[in-house]
Design a binder for these strands. Structure first.
Lengths: 219, 219
DNA sequence: ATATTGAATATTGGATCCAATATATATTAT
DNA sequence: ATAATATATATTGGATCCAATATTCAATAT
């Protein structure tokens, strides 16, 4: 008798399914700044009760992706230019450290995947894909790093600005410059130049910061 | 007719009361690594139902202060030497930036408060107070900074290692060195030397990292 | 017509209950 | 006595219900 056993405790809870779906919807711009998250509506959509939805929303608030007000519910968080600047500054501190740690640990396989993703980004004609391709590329490189806490911090920082980055990528001509910079970072990684990769990553982020700040409306 | 009005939506929810209490209990070492957080027990203690307790626990997990396993509940998170190292490295990146931003913004009042807290730390004979006094001092200096996101990141990083820092402060002779370093940082702040304050802060954190890593058991 | 008040409806916060899973204890088999 | 099985108990996950607060709409006053 061949049975495929599975660890039942690895199954996703209702709350984490809702959390992941909402996080993705926010990052991808399907839920826009200020949009209310109606507990009952989301619960209906996922065919669950409101309790897991409330837990998911609590977690999203800790991630800075939504803002809740007592008795008034949650809305998708906005991003002021000041906040954006800080978040990018933090990324410019953290991500070079990640890549510096990652470079000596990169396998041939990781580098191949990264090159494929770099090309995919560069060649894509579908603006809807650019955000995912951009992020995939960076995440592939960073995946070689063993700095799990730094990865967690960077991941959340990116989540915070991702919706705006994606909007900006679609609406401006930053794609070409980003593509070139990706290849330069990748080359440095392939050549084992950790410090160069870190510097290029920092410059890349600083450039993205400048672009995004120009794109964001002034309050 | 004189009525004192209040904004009812500013009242604390059950969930945030539980969250704050658990966070403090973890930070202060009253809840130790591996200790289970029993939903029903906590609910009874706070005279509420389990729902707000579950939400509080979800938030604590996002903060990295507890670890939950599906169907098995939450336990207070541990801290490996590797994690500790990373968290301190992140702090050593972030906190100097905070203080550099804070120094030119420090009022006479903030500096006076900081000096009072610095002296209080230095003079305290009660090991149970050292943790709070230490943190108070740094938070007072940082409060002059307008980098709200950096403050959030640093605050959480400190929360993650605070229990161990406090244990280590009590059990080792790092108090004297910490006290001297505090006064040096404070002097630099008072003299408007933002870069010096940043360097001293970085050195202070790196020193604390070394001490803590010596204190933590090797796995 | 506009402003104010009252009623109805929508939504959130959390209490209670039920089902599912994990753990502890008792019973049976070896 | 030890190991395996069955039963009881503890705990978690979430469905449902109720109370509290906010928002919308209708009715009334000016």
């Amino acid at each position: 008798m061949k049975l495929k056993s599975m660890d039942i405790s690895a199954t996703a809870s209702a709350s984490s399914i809702v959390f992941d779906a909402l996080r993705n919807a926010i990052i991808e711009g399907q839920l826009e700044e200020g949009e209310p998250l109606r507990q009952d509506e989301i619960a209906r959509l996922f065919n669950t009760s409101r309790i897991p939805v409330r837990e998911a929303i609590s977690r999203l608030e800790e991630q800075g992706l939504v803002k809740t007000q007592r008795y008034k519910g949650a809305v998708v968080a906005g991003l002021s230019p000041e906040e954006a600047e800080e978040i990018f500054s933090l990324r410019a501190l953290v991500e070079p450290e990640i890549i510096k740690n990652a470079v000596p640990r990169m396998s041939r396989e990781v580098l191949d995947q990264a090159r494929a993703k770099c090309s995919a980004f560069s060649e894509s004609k579908d603006p809807m894909e650019w955000g995912n391709l951009n992020r995939d590329f960076h995440e592939t490189l960073y995946s070689a790093s063993n700095l799990s806490y730094f990865l967690e911090i960077a991941g959340n920082a990116i989540d915070r600005v991702e919706r705006q980055i994606r909007a900006q990528l679609v609406m401006s001509n930053g794609m070409e410059r980003a593509g070139r910079e990706h290849f330069a970072i990748l080359d440095a990684c392939e050549n084992g130049q950790a410090d160069t990769a870190a510097e290029l990553t920092k410059a890349h982020i600083e450039g993205a910061k400048t672009s995004l700040l120009q794109f964001l409306p002034k309050a």
